[in-house]
Design a protein around this nucleic acid. Structure first.
Lengths: 226, 226
DNA sequence: CAACCATGTGACGATTCGGTGACGAAATGA
DNA sequence: TCATTTCGTCACCGAATCGTCACATGGTTG
């Protein structure tokens, strides 16, 4: 499925340039020449990204941006602003507006593409955290704070649960002891890194057969294997 | 590591001026006087940025630009075009060429430096370090801390993994033993440089056929060849 | 060819690393 | 309050890994 991009600008040449390049790169592009059209298309087509010029007749880019954010249907769509003045950058990225990136004119098509890719990559991978993690017979239920093995509950402490969860959420990726200390214990560890080992041991003990998922990578850290 | 800039122009005065200023600013500069030379150097030296004059004998800047884009090895290098005519700007930044910025002659050295910095900053920050390195049948997965050859995992120790990774990330460039000690062992090595040899040997042993990628450069160090 | 130097190789002792059980402190809960 | 659970640290052990050495090998130089 192609990613959809809405381009908002009133200058036909810019529109043409941007549209051509984005289409070339495999995106589905729709365009709008003014604020009213932009808002309407944003709501009806739910694009994955909006490229928005600041300088527009009637409703300017700032206003459109604000309006987009206020509408629940479009509030979360990433926006890249096009601006002629470097001085406007602060306002563009400011809190009230919340654009996700900006480009100052003149910009090269390649530059635009880089930004588009970067922003889309960021938003695309930002999947909402799953409520349940399942690996074979092992089930981790985050909201319920329950772990089961073959449907049989496994008792464990809060720290152990968090440790297991963090590892499972990054299944496959090796986590160093320092990393784990930061993420599980949160405050910058005044804690001995060996503490992680002890908790891993207790965790392994409790989850029994499921401990086959918990891998030690000597000299590096621990890893959850699927 | 200094950023490398290739300057392409046929007028010696311009070359000299640009080269002096860029070097002053801490860049590594190489120059080319015509299209053929430019293409060759662009491919062999993999500069981080190319400053390209439009007006050149034989092959003009537009053609060179196009040729650079068509070659995978140079397609992603940002280009700043130098042009005498403001009227050419559209073409320079336009669809078919895709230069990343332009300067109209005459330009001041400060102006050039500003552009160079701007462009380099943009493209430099976009590059995220790769999570996977693939060379033929050899795959190095950094976050997973796994190396495979023809999809078959290769066991190795943490040090060996780091050594291989560092070499692979700098594929093609020879690394001295001292360099490797610094980067792999991190602290300023109280360690014998011959230790590197031993680890290279163990590494080669373990990765078997893939060791064809590991080159010894007599008298200098080791190199990862693609 | 001979001497020399850089690198490959195998072996070995030293060190590091992770698993483990134990213990007291801290937190929890009745 | 007291009993119980959970936590962080420690000491110890076996095993994996490391750094170094001595020697072999092979390329280079005169």
């Amino acid at each position: 499925m192609k990613l959809r991009i809405l381009v908002v600008d009133d200058e036909p040449e810019i529109i043409e340039l941007v549209e051509f390049n984005l289409k070339q790169a495999g995106y589905a592009v729709t365009t709008a020449a003014d604020g009213a059209e932009a808002l309407k298309k944003a709501r009806t087509q739910t694009p994955d990204l909006i490229v928005l010029d600041v300088m527009l007749p009637e409703m300017d880019g700032f206003e459109i941006c604000k309006a987009l954010r206020l509408d629940a249907a479009t509030a979360k769509v990433p926006i890249i602003m096009l601006t002629a003045k470097a001085a406007e950058i602060d306002r563009v990225l400011g809190l009230e507006l919340g654009a996700d990136d900006y480009l100052t004119k003149p910009f090269s098509p390649r530059e635009l593409l880089l930004r588009v890719k970067k922003i889309l990559a960021r938003f695309q991978t930002e999947e909402k955290p799953k409520e349940q993690l399942r690996f074979g017979d092992l089930l981790i239920d985050l909201p319920r704070h329950i772990v089961t093995w073959k449907n049989k509950p496994i008792e464990m402490t809060a720290t152990e649960f968090k440790l297991l969860t963090i590892l499972a959420q990054r299944a496959g990726r090796v986590q160093s002891r320092d990393q784990l200390l930061r993420d599980v214990w949160e405050y910058d560890s005044l804690i001995d890194t060996r503490t992680v080992d002890t908790h891993m041991r207790r965790l392994r003990e409790k989850i029994g057969a499921a401990s086959k998922h918990l891998d030690t990578v000597r000299g590096v850290g621990y890893r959850f294997v699927e």
